[in-house]
Simulated scan of single mutants.
Amino acid sequence: MDIKIETYIEQIVSQLNCGEEEKREIIDEMRDHLYLLKNEFLEQGFPNDEATQRALERFGEQKQLTKGLQESLFPFYRVFRIGTWILFGLYSFIILFKLLFHRIIIRILESINGSTRNPYFITPLHSDGYFDLEVLKINSNIVPFKNTIEYVTGSARFNLDIIINNTLGNVLVFLPFGIFLPLLFKKCKSLSKVVVASVSISFSIEVLQLVLKIGQFDIDDVILNVMGSIIGFLLIKSIKSVANLPKRRVKSI
């Protein structure tokens, strides 16, 4: 095995958005072609390293090969990727607007109107202000599933829309996140990386809501958001697996 050739092949194939079986077939074809080219140069009397370099140069530039292979595998890949980025941008804007920007606008408008009421943040009358430990306790929940259990078991105390929004709603709102990440970011192809990204984003939003006094920090929201992204990730993986089934069946016949 030639390390340069193997690295060259790996760098090209790793960028392709296709199934593992297709990748293995492409690797085998590229490997056969490259080693044939290298042997031709060796027979012409070139040293091993130079023969490898000439074979790689003749085979083609990596970016162009990756682009060509991706287009042959998925002719509308560019259109699909642009469309996916647009949808991800719209999704991100809607989420940030709903959870942050909309609340900030409401608080600004209430301040302009002279109102001291804050529907998102509880401040006791005799507290010492924002950094009062009691205020932080009232506006924070760090006990996993504490509030979720209260919503689920407290149907007599909460309206149905409140229960749904704070349980199922928190799952569904991050479900698209688990779909978009592996589609758009090559570093987020694994479930563990999607979970880390989801925790980071959700936790940051919760902290910002608390710091800006436009919401309360709830660890349950983070957990439910991450559950939603996991469901989204598993969903897109399942769709990809099903999409590859016909090809596998044809090859096995």
Rank of each mutant, 00 (worst) to 15 (best):
I231S: 02
F93D: 03
M30F: 06
Q11P: 00
R81E: 10
D128A: 15
I94V: 06
F76W: 09
F180V: 15
Q15D: 08
D218E: 15
E21K: 08
E150D: 13
D2Q: 10
W85V: 05
E6L: 15
K23I: 10
D221K: 07
K186H: 10
L234G: 03
I5E: 05
N39M: 04
P246D: 13
A197Q: 01
V199H: 01
D2R: 01
F174Q: 03
Q11A: 05
L87I: 09
F80T: 13
L65P: 08
L191K: 03
L90M: 09
I3N: 01
G228N: 06
V211Y: 12
E57D: 14
V171W: 08
R117S: 14
K187R: 03
D28W: 14
N166T: 09
I9E: 13
V173C: 07
E57M: 10
A55S: 14
P124A: 14
S127I: 01
I179T: 04
I82L: 10
I108H: 02
H102P: 00
L125V: 10
G68H: 05
E206H: 09
G215N: 05
I26F: 07
I12N: 06
I105N: 00
Y91R: 12
S115Q: 02
S155T: 12
G114D: 04
T123L: 06
P47K: 01
K98Y: 06
S202Q: 09
K186M: 05
F59T: 07
I231M: 12
I164W: 07
Q62S: 06
G89S: 14
D32V: 14
S241C: 02
F145N: 09
E50L: 13
G154V: 10
L96C: 08
D220R: 11
L235Q: 00
I205T: 08
Q62H: 07
V13D: 02
S92E: 02
N113R: 12
T123G: 01
S140N: 01
I164N: 02
L172E: 03
N48M: 09
T7D: 12
G178I: 02
S241D: 07
G68E: 05
I95P: 00
V79D: 06
K251S: 06
N48R: 12
N147G: 01
M227S: 13
N141F: 12
G129W: 14
N147V: 05
L36A: 11
F185K: 03
S238T: 04
C18K: 04
D49A: 13
H102N: 08
L181S: 06
C188D: 11
F185C: 06
T7E: 15
H126G: 01
S204L: 09
R117C: 04
L42E: 13
I142G: 06
I149E: 11
H102F: 00
I105E: 07
D220C: 00
F59M: 05
I106N: 00
V250M: 03
S252L: 08
L133T: 13
I9D: 14
A55Q: 05
F131Y: 15
V143Q: 09
L90H: 08
Y35W: 15
V13H: 05
S155E: 12
D161L: 08
L90G: 06
N170E: 08
L42V: 08
P124S: 14
T153R: 15
L109S: 02
L168K: 08
K240Q: 15
G60E: 15
T52H: 01
L175N: 10
L133R: 12
I214G: 00
